[in-house]
C-alpha cells in the first residue's frame, strides 16, 4: 500500500523571488492611488457618480484578484483551493448584488420611506 502516486510535492511552486512580491505590492499601491483619483474625479465633477463607481469597483476588483492570486498563492496552488474559495466568494458577491438590487433597483421590492 504505497502512496507514491498520491504524493504531491508540496513546495514545487514555492519561493517566487522577493522582488516579485514587491512588484505586486507596488501594483497594489498604484491601483489604490488610481481608486482615490477615481473618487476625486467625481468630487471635482469630471464625470458622474455612476462612472466613478464603475472605475473604482473595477480597480478594487483588480486589487482583490492580485492579493488572492499572488499573496494568498491561489494562482500557483492546487486548483482545489481556488474552488473552495471561489464558490463562497461568489455566493457572497451574489448576496451583496442581490440585496443592492432588491433595496435600490427593482421597483416595489423595498419599503420606501419619505
Amino acid at each position: 500500500m504505497t502512496s507514491s502516486t498520491r504524493e504531491i510535492v508540496h513546495d514545487q511552486h514555492a519561493h517566487p523571488s522577493t522582488r516579485f512580491y514587491w512588484i505586486i505590492g507596488a501594483l497594489l499601491m498604484v491601483l489604490t492611488v488610481l481608486e482615490i483619483f477615481g473618487y476625486l474625479g467625481e468630487t471635482r465633477a469630471v464625470y458622474t457618480a455612476g462612472i466613478a463607481a464603475v472605475i473604482i469597483l473595477a480597480l478594487s476588483a483588480a486589487k482583490f484578484v492580485a492579493v488572492v492570486a499572488y499573496y494568498m498563492h491561489l494562482k500557483p496552488d492546487h486548483k482545489l483551493f481556488t474552488a473552495i474559495f471561489v464558490f463562497p466568494a461568489l455566493l457572497g458577491t451574489l448576496v451583496i448584488v442581490g440585496m443592492t438590487m432588491l433595496f435600490h433597483v427593482i421597483p416595489s421590492t423595498y419599503t420606501g420611506h419619505p
Partner: peptide
C-alpha cells in the same frame, strides 16, 4: 490549509451579509 480556506469561505458570507446590509441601507 484546506480547512482554513473553507473557513475563509464561511467568512466571505459573514462579511458578504454585513456589506449587503450596508448597501441595502446606503
Amino acid at each position: 490549509k484546506l480547512a482554513f480556506w473553507t473557513f475563509i469561505g464561511s467568512e466571505c458570507l459573514l462579511f458578504g451579509s454585513l456589506i449587503a446590509t450596508y448597501m441595502a441601507y446606503k
